[in-house]
Design a binder for these strands. Structure first.
Lengths: 244, 244
DNA sequence: TTCATTATCCATAAATCCATAGATAACACG
DNA sequence: CGTGTTATCTATGGATTTATGGATAATGAA
């Protein structure tokens, strides 16, 4: 029958896919999207986080908005961008998976940092949740404060990597410390663990990062409140923990 | 400490991700990769399937090979390409998911064909496996023969869409027919179902397609043998069906 | 060896992408 | 209303990407 039309349609379809693909051809655009998967951020915040000129960052964000990967919200004279949905974060995460598995260069970069904190020692999400509930662990979010405020693991305290050594005394020396960051490709948490161990602390990384925690629908807190262990508690009492 | 170095490393990391991203910026490259997720194909086979000149197709394949997304094998004077791993197929599938969810244009194209075969009527993988085993369903693979031969659902017969009407009498009129193709973005199976219903047959699509079946580690047969129901049978008797 | 088939490499011209500076626009606050 | 802040739009030149034809290379068959 109309094989001609079908052929046309298939070409159109792949052109649409390429619209999405276009977003991840530029390193800075991937970086921006990765940041947005951590939570909402304003344009100039994103620009300074990535080292881009404001107009360049804005242009990249437009590209992503045009293919509906991100959405915006205006508050006063600031425009906040966010990922348009969890499938977008999954897409970025999958891209990372492929790079990690396929590219020796990526393995190398990750090994440079993570050599002393090997992967078998990471804490699973379920374990972490249970131990937060039991109160026998300190969870630190080592990402920049902005990302912590845009959503963090309930019960975690904000302790950006750059301040870690200076604020070491805030951490109970008797407790084990679990650090987390943006995900499997992020170097912050592994670096934090290296630093902590250098100071004789018992420390481990969470398996992957915040986006995965969010996708597992585990409890997330917004803003700067740090005393929210009870939220995790309430969550646990109404949900079977086997689900995660 | 060495924040400078960390910044550098992060930039390098995103550049590596962009190497992968580069593959999916070109519609034809996505089409090629999608085909390779169906199974191994030779270069000129791929070229004619996508309507590309041989040299162009080869160039695209080089790009994908350089970032390890595909691998090759030589047999006589033909070079066969294949996806380098299942995470690559997952990446393409995720790209499709995002496009399907986010882009109205994609929804439109899919609706044009699939309007009469709505998604709630699709057969799940588990159901299909059980019914193949019970022998009360005919499974047709409506993709081109090359893809059928590069791996098909055990028990399925090859009946490319273009020959469907001509070979209708090969299908038992009493049996329900389940058609499958490349996946959620492929139009072949929905079109086949439309055609079959027009001829008064009871027909449905499988939920998504071959790559997903393969990823679920369900039984796959290679080559042109069509009498392989017993393989599925053997598979079922040694595996709990609840797993899928 | 010579020829045919298949694939890769190479040069090129057209198209597209990118970062940037500067202009414009939206908004808040006096 | 004017001023300052934040973001978007526009124009530009330099870099990159793409399709293509033709040369080269690898392999099998005669």
């Amino acid at each position: 029958m109309d094989n001609e039309k079908t052929y046309e349609e298939r070409a159109l379809l792949y052109e649409q896919l390429a619209r999405i693909g276009k977003v991840v051809v530029n390193p800075k655009r991937i970086e921006l999207l990765d940041l947005l998967c951590q939570g909402e951020r304003s344009v100039d915040d994103l620009a300074s986080a990535t080292g881009l000129k404001l107009s360049t960052a804005s242009a990249h964000l437009q590209v992503m908005r045009q293919c509906r990967l991100v959405e915006t919200r205006r508050d006063a004279n600031r425009v906040y961008y966010r990922s348009a949905g969890e499938e977008v974060c999954r897409f970025v995460a999958t891209l990372g998976d492929v790079a990690r598995i396929r590219l020796a260069e990526v393995k190398q970069i990750l090994a440079d940092i993570g050599s002393h904190t090997n992967d078998t020692e990471r804490v699973s999400r379920v374990d972490l949740l249970n131990r937060v509930r039991a109160g026998d662990v300190v969870v630190i979010d080592v990402r920049p404060v902005e990302e912590y405020e845009a959503g963090h693991i309930s019960g975690a305290i904000s302790l950006p990597l750059e301040y870690l050594e200076a604020r070491l005394d805030e951490l109970d020396p008797q407790m084990e410390i679990v650090a987390y960051c943006r995900g499997p490709l992020c170097l912050l948490a592994p670096q934090a663990v290296v630093t902590l161990r250098k100071h004789g602390r018992q420390a481990r990384c969470l398996e992957d990062g915040m986006p995965e925690w969010r996708q597992a629908r585990l409890p997330v807190t917004f803003g700067s409140n740090t005393a929210d262990v009870q939220m995790a508690e309430a969550f646990l009492s109404t949900n079977k923990k086997e689900e995660f």
